[in-house]
Structure formats: structure tokens, C-alpha cells
């Protein structure tokens, strides 16, 4: 028996979260197979086959899979899953959409957002926005799991997996893709950036002006609280937290962020946390390695100026 990873890719190569899932999957000590779904995935499959720890890459191509719809991809996953012991993916919007659908079709439970694999069927996962850590045991013969990518190192190249192509089932017809808006920006991918500079709603209209130069100097990504996103200062895919992106960079700078549990849930596993807030009692200071009680409108430009000197 082996492990099947539903791997997210960008058409050319695996996303970093897929590489992190590959290392997470080593915990089961079974051969790891990757499933890539899309239109024209040959290049991505060839590149995925080079990753250490991968035994086989299966790719399924069809024009209607160019934008993977849950109805179609879950059918492909279900068609393969019976031959596997574990079905796993990273806990990103891609898999969050597809894997629960596949699990229900297979009549098995799913364990979401796993941060530690303690035994082949026992997992650690945060609940209540990370306020509680649960250990859960899954009694199903097929384990369906999503892992929190930031809790695992990315697998590196050094493998040589066999590549197989499987035919795609016809489109379900229950849904169709219409359009997408990609929030294109020059910034590194938020979920995997080594440095993240986040701001809260108090930055107001100066959100970008205050954070972007600092992020550029530190080669980091800009993040935001939900309040900042709601106020329209930052795009929705910058939201860090329980219901946004989970990050765990080497350095996280929180400016003008109160530190609500829902925000902490998305960043408190960062290696070093800096908080800048003018309220000395702000809860964000409880997770900060370095706290600066200051007005952010002065501190941020000063910090930007001081770095790189």
C-alpha cells in the first residue's frame, strides 16, 4: 500500500506546499505517489518526478481540467483512492475544496490542518483558532488528511520517480469555470515567504506606503489583519489568520495589530515575532519576542530607514 498526494502545481512545477506535503508524508514510511491534475501537466509532472521521496507521479490531463473544479477532481481522486492507505494534501484552498468531497464519496472521515503525525492514524491539529491542540485518532482504513504546510520542511530535489498518465473522466457538468482574478503582485508568496510584515486597520490609507518599502528591503511579503482587509486597505489574499493564510516565516513583524486569537492562529508559529503597537497591553505582545511600544507612523519609517544601513 502507498500514499497518494493530491499535489498542487502551477502548470510548470509543484507549489512549495506540495513539497512540504511530500516531507510530511514520509512519516507513514510508505511509497509516495503524486497526483497532478490539469491541462498539459507533462512539464510539471517531469519536474515533480525529480523530488526526493517520490516513487511515482500520476498525471491526468484534459482541457476541462485547466481550472480544477472540485466535482471533477474529486471524481479522479476517488477513482484512485481505493488502492491507497493514505490520501493527503496541503491545507490550501485547492485541497480544502476537493478532499472533503472525495472523503464523503469514499464514506471516510477527513482530518484537516494536521500539524503533526504522531502515529499512522493519530494526528495533532489545532482547533478553536489554535487555542486548543487536539490529538485525534482516525479509525478509517483509508486515512484522508490535509497538513498545514508550514509545519513541515519542503522536500528537495534528488529523486527519479516513474511517470504515468491516466485518462481523464468526462467533466461532471455540474459546475463550470467562469473566470478568475489573480491578485498579481511582485511580492513573494505569502504562505512561504521567509519574512512577513503585516499591518492592521490602524495603518489606514497608508497601508502600502508604510509596509511595502520595508517588505522589499527584507525581501518579504506583506500580510494583513481581517480588519485591514475589510476596510479595503489590503487585498483578501493577504489576510493572515484562522480564516486566512497560515504563515510561519523566520521573521514576522506585526504593526498596529491588536493580536486577536483569530489573527494569532495564523502567525504564532513564526520563528521570531516583532510587535509594534502603541498600546502596551495589546495581546500581540504576549507572542512577541521583541515588542516595541511606539506609534507605528513613526516607528515603521524609522525601521525601514535603519535596515540596510
Amino acid at each position: 500500500m502507498s500514499i497518494l498526494i493530491l499535489a498542487e502545481h502551477d502548470g510548470q512545477q509543484l507549489k512549495k506546499a506540495a513539497r512540504q506535503t511530500i516531507s510530511a508524508a514520509q512519516a507513514w514510511g510508505l511509497p509516495v505517489h503524486l497526483l497532478l491534475v490539469g491541462d498539459n501537466t507533462a512539464a510539471a509532472a517531469a519536474s515533480a518526478a525529480q523530488v526526493a521521496g517520490v516513487a511515482r507521479v500520476i498525471h491526468v490531463d484534459a482541457p476541462h481540467l485547466a481550472h480544477p473544479l472540485a466535482e471533477d477532481v474529486s471524481a479522479i481522486v476517488v477513482g484512485l483512492a481505493r488502492d491507497y492507505k493514505v490520501l493527503v494534501s496541503a491545507h490550501t484552498t485547492f485541497a480544502k475544496n476537493i478532499l472533503p468531497r472525495a472523503a464523503a464519496l469514499l464514506d471516510v472521515a477527513m482530518v484537516a490542518d494536521v500539524i503533526g503525525i504522531k502515529a499512522p492514524n493519530t494526528y495533532a491539529r489545532p482547533i478553536y483558532a489554535g487555542s486548543v491542540l487536539a490529538t485525534v485518532e482516525n479509525s478509517d482504513a483509508l486515512q484522508v488528511v490535509t497538513v498545514r504546510a508550514t509545519s513541515f520542511d519542503a522536500a528537495v530535489d534528488g529523486g527519479n520517480a516513474e511517470i504515468t498518465t491516466l485518462p481523464a473522466p468526462a467533466a461532471s457538468g455540474k459546475s463550470r469555470w467562469v473566470s478568475e482574478v489573480r491578485n498579481e503582485s511582485d511580492q513573494p508568496d505569502l504562505a512561504s515567504a521567509p519574512v512577513v510584515i503585516s499591518g492592521g486597520r490602524s495603518l489606514g490609507e497608508q497601508f502600502h506606503q508604510l509596509l511595502t518599502p520595508l517588505a522589499q528591503k527584507l525581501e518579504g511579503a506583506v500580510g494583513a489583519t481581517r480588519a485591514a482587509v475589510d476596510a479595503g486597505y489590503a487585498p483578501n489574499d493577504w489576510q493572515v489568520g484562522q480564516t486566512g493564510t497560515i504563515v510561519a516565516p523566520g521573521l514576522y513583524i506585526a504593526a498596529g495589530i491588536s493580536g486577536a486569537a483569530q489573527h494569532l492562529a495564523g502567525m504564532k508559529d513564526s520563528k521570531i515575532i516583532v510587535a509594534i503597537n502603541h498600546d502596551p497591553d495589546a495581546p500581540i505582545f504576549s507572542v512577541a519576542d521583541y515588542g516595541l511600544v511606539a506609534d507605528l507612523f513613526e516607528a515603521l519609517p524609522a525601521l525601514t530607514a535603519a535596515i540596510g544601513k
Binding site: G130, S131, T135, E137, D289, L292
Partner: peptide
């Protein structure tokens, strides 16, 4: 299908320090 084996507080971060100025923050980092 799932059994909760245990619930625990997540490990606390080790307490941090307050710095007094941007210069001190930069030095520490």
C-alpha cells in the same frame, strides 16, 4: 470515525522582551 485522544494547551512561546527604540530593535534582530 474520529476519536479525540487528548486536548491540550498549545505550547506557549517563550516570553519576549520589550525594546525601547527602533535602533535597539534593529540591533537585536
Amino acid at each position: 470515525h474520529l476519536k479525540v485522544v487528548n486536548l491540550a494547551e498549545p505550547p506557549a512561546r517563550k516570553p519576549g522582551i520589550k525594546v525601547n527604540s527602533v535602533a535597539e530593535l534593529v540591533e537585536k534582530l
